[in-house]
Amino acid sequence: MSSPEIHSDVVETGPAREGLSRLLDLVFGFFIWAAHFLIVYVGAALVCALAPAEASANAGLTVALALATVAAAAIVVLHGVRRYRQQREEPEQQFPMYVTIGCDAIALVAIMWQLFPIFLVPACA
């Protein structure tokens, strides 16, 4: 995928670390948020469509959804911490670092927020 332009004899002036993946890393937290949102929403819908109204299944579903939420939250926290360790020393990366960690933080709140419906609303009701 990442084939350098080996036949250009013009010196590359652009920095190497500015590809698409570097840009998308800024909003990594929200990708996890989106994945988590889809997993709990689709997962709950699927389980309830297949095995509706069994009390034990419902309790299991609640636990599974809560675990998925905690796992997603942990991934986001780890990502934020990792980027902080990598970038805090580099003066040029300060703004991208703030954005990365900020996105991780807001995504973290939005993910944890889903614990309200998970614990307060009975599954498959």
């Binding site: 709950a44 309830c48 419906p117 307060l120 609303v121 498959c124 009701a125």
Partner: peptide, 8 residues
């Protein structure tokens, strides 16, 4: 739609 879905 199911209540839990709406609540998300």
């Amino acid at each position: 739609m199911p209540l839990l879905s709406l609540s998300f």
